[in-house]
Amino acid sequence: MHLKYKIQGGNFSKAGFASSEVKKILRQLSIEPKTIKRLVVALYEGEVNIVAHAYNGLITVDIDTEKVTVTLKDNGPGIPDIDKAMEQGYSTASAAVREMGFGAGMGLPNMKKNTDEMTIKSVVNEGTEVIFINYI
């Protein structure tokens, strides 16, 4: 199964819509609740990151019998130092993002925790691509 969602940067009223849709589909496939939770928490963190930090993005989700592969690709400022961005507490989030309850620098480490495999590629002034895999 192949799913695709366009994400608008800056639009917090829609943030989480894609993750919510994916969650509903995973539930219908009767995947274990704990497995679903890990996956959708990581996906939601990634979706919020696009909304909070990028201009626009595309999320694709591929579900097969043994794993779910999620790709979060955006056009945006990119991440100059990925190792630093992965550190707990590092954040460049704006005041507006903080007002929404985000911007503590906890998202990427939490994505790492909730995924089985995760890679980040980023080009400054172009964008970021996060790919993760969770086995189901």
């Binding site: 917090f12 943030a15 989480g16 969650k23 929404m100 985000f102």
Partner: peptide
């Protein structure tokens, strides 16, 4: 004390 949509979305994802 944070009453916005993301509070509900977060609750949804975190069960």
């Amino acid at each position: 004390g944070l009453n916005n949509l993301q509070t509900i979305r977060t609750a949804e994802m975190a069960e």
